[in-house]
Nucleic acid binder design. Structure first.
Lengths: 343, 343
DNA sequence: TTGAAAGCGCTACCAA
DNA sequence: TTGGTAGCGCTTTCAA
């Protein structure tokens, strides 16, 4: 069923039917009723492409997934983010679209999105330090919002980010407070903006406590299970091994745990760990929530908020870009104990 | 830049330019060269909506995400599946679209997809036993493929599934072989097709070994961390507790581990566990691969295969539906040991 | 080998 | 309050 046939059935013009269905005020109540009833009866839905062609709006939000395996998409919490975002988007009639492209072509796809008119806006995931996609998107005039931020980019852009610096500063302070002085940091790739911020928080807390920052305790790579495993083994085999480890990813944390256990040590006694591992409880409002559940629900929330910001931006393109900071909760539990006495 | 302007610039008709760009044979080589060069220069991309309107194809694959929190989307390996699928899709020029809908409206969205012409085909996730979405999709003529199968549906449909029955049968046999006779099964919701198949494999192995199937050892619910935790505590507190536990989900397994540790037992010694937990090694071709990595890569592969089947189906709509079975590897590792002696 | 023109299904302007 | 009609940007006959 299309508009033309529906109009014929009703003995009305396409114009009137379209207006009735789109809530225009100049349609008589009687006509509108009749039209709506018929539309329901014939299960009529306007064709998206025709509508989009006529209005210039796609009602689709794009998201680009670089091909390289270890990126966002394969992060297990990515699904939660998408679930949150798409919930908000669907309330406003937007669908989400994913395009997978080879890393090298990533900037091409944005031009293509723009030229093809395939999407109304895009979400930028996993921003790098000084991420050139931001100026690019501004230049080609494709509305976007960044999930995270990008140090070094001075032009304005909208983002929703978690206060990574503060979270890692607090976590480090907490470990220092427990008596730890050899605290390792298993971090993401240095090029990732969040990784730099996390390191900054970690270093700030150490400096404030008068503890020297030791490069031998800091590791940085793509956050895989193996990375966490390999570096934890190496850290624990060192001359003066860490008494605490902060792992910046749930995936890497799996490897951290395994390495500790294989070394014959006990988490929370011989080595403290602050991470997203399940072994941790989640202290939030004094409640003990399974950690994985908690993280996933907050990521989901972030998705909802980000989507709302993007919708607002699309509807008010001239407003200054929204920039939202979310606070991360401190992740502490059974695996985090006082520093062991060493002789 | 659009076709009309491009044609004007070239002093050609839209028809010729279109033909040149779409590889029609009747265009002279010289003209094609000239057109392609100009298209590149002006960074011309055909408008998706206009093209779709004219051709009747959307070049988009839909996926519906029910609103209920615990569904597929929030399964941490969902992202891997999507990554695999979208890689294949993008090779054929398809994008993936996600629509989030309240559970009650789930069948509406398919009619809407069809009516709106928003997608060319859909992927059906998490099929139930006797899933009525399958006859619905057949009825409305929207091409689809099921990730999994649906017992009780007799009409033909395409699917890609993992042999859950065999995987759980093998796993159970393996535990029996190690001397276990009290083997618990922590399973997904009974309504889910895969849950029934897993249980069938489990029961078949027990029966073959002459071990009675004990309902007190079988738990079924949405696979959350808490579910795994709660039921494992309960199982271990029973009169005659299990010596082995099979957990059918990575998430639930987090809770299983926690419950075992809190009970003061040791995995692999007091209780054997077969699951997707990180503690396990992954025996595959004799190699020791981190379990999480292994699972995720095979899910990714499943996504690629499924996407290929769907593309084939779109291009040859009259061919019989493809039905692919993938074998699951047995997940066994450090947490799986011989049955403890009980007096 | 090229071009003119009729749609695809809808919105939005202008007229009635 | 309603209708006629000109696009939106493309593909695809049909004609030349």
């Amino acid at each position: 069923m299309n508009l033309k046939r529906l109009a014929e059935e009703l003995g009305l013009s396409q114009t009137t039917v379209s207006r009735a269905l789109n809530g225009y005020p100049e349609v008589s109540e009687a006509t509108r009723k009749r039209v709506e009833e018929a539309a329901r009866r014939y299960n009529y839905r306007p064709n998206s492409r025709a509508k989009g062609l006529a209005t210039g709006r796609a009602m689709v939000i794009g998201q680009v997934i670089p091909t390289s395996v270890q990126h966002e998409m394969v992060n297990p919490i990515f699904g939660d983010f998408v679930a949150g975002a798409s919930q908000t988007f669907s309330r406003y009639g937007y669908d989400m679209m994913f395009s997978r492209v080879p890393d090298v072509d990533e900037s091409d796809i944005y031009r293509e999105y723009r030229a093809r008119g395939a999407v109304d806006a895009v979400i930028l995931q996993g921003p790098l330090v000084n991420d050139q996609r931001i100026p690019l998107l501004n230049r080609i005039g494709l509305p976007f919002i960044v999930h995270g931020r990008s140090t070094g980019i001075t032009e304005p852009y909208a983002f929703v980010d978690v206060n990574n610096t503060r979270a890692f500063q607090h976590a480090t302070e907490f470990l220092v407070h427990l008596g730890h002085r050899r605290i390792a940091l298993i971090n993401g790739l240095e090029g990732m903006d969040f990784a730099q911020r996390r390191r900054a928080g970690y270093e700030a807390a150490l400096k404030a406590a008068g503890i020297p920052v030791d490069p031998a305790l800091m590791r940085s790579d793509e956050m895989t299970e193996y990375f966490g495993y390999r570096e934890t083994r190496a850290l624990l085999a060192q001359e003066d091994p860490p008494t605490a480890i902060m792992a910046a990813s749930m995936i890497a944390a799996l490897g951290v745990r395994r390495a500790i256990e294989e070394t014959g040590l006990t988490m929370g006694r011989d080595v403290s760990v602050i991470t997203h591992d399940d072994d941790l409880s989640y202290l939030k409002n004094g409640q003990d929530v399974p950690i994985f559940t908690a993280i996933r629900s907050s990521v989901r929330k972030a998705g909802e908020i980000l989507a709302q910001c993007l919708v607002d931006q699309i509807n008010a393109p001239d407003a200054p870009p929204e920039q939202r900071m979310l606070e991360a909760d401190l992740l502490v539990g059974r695996s985090t104990g006082p520093a062991p006495q060493r002789t």
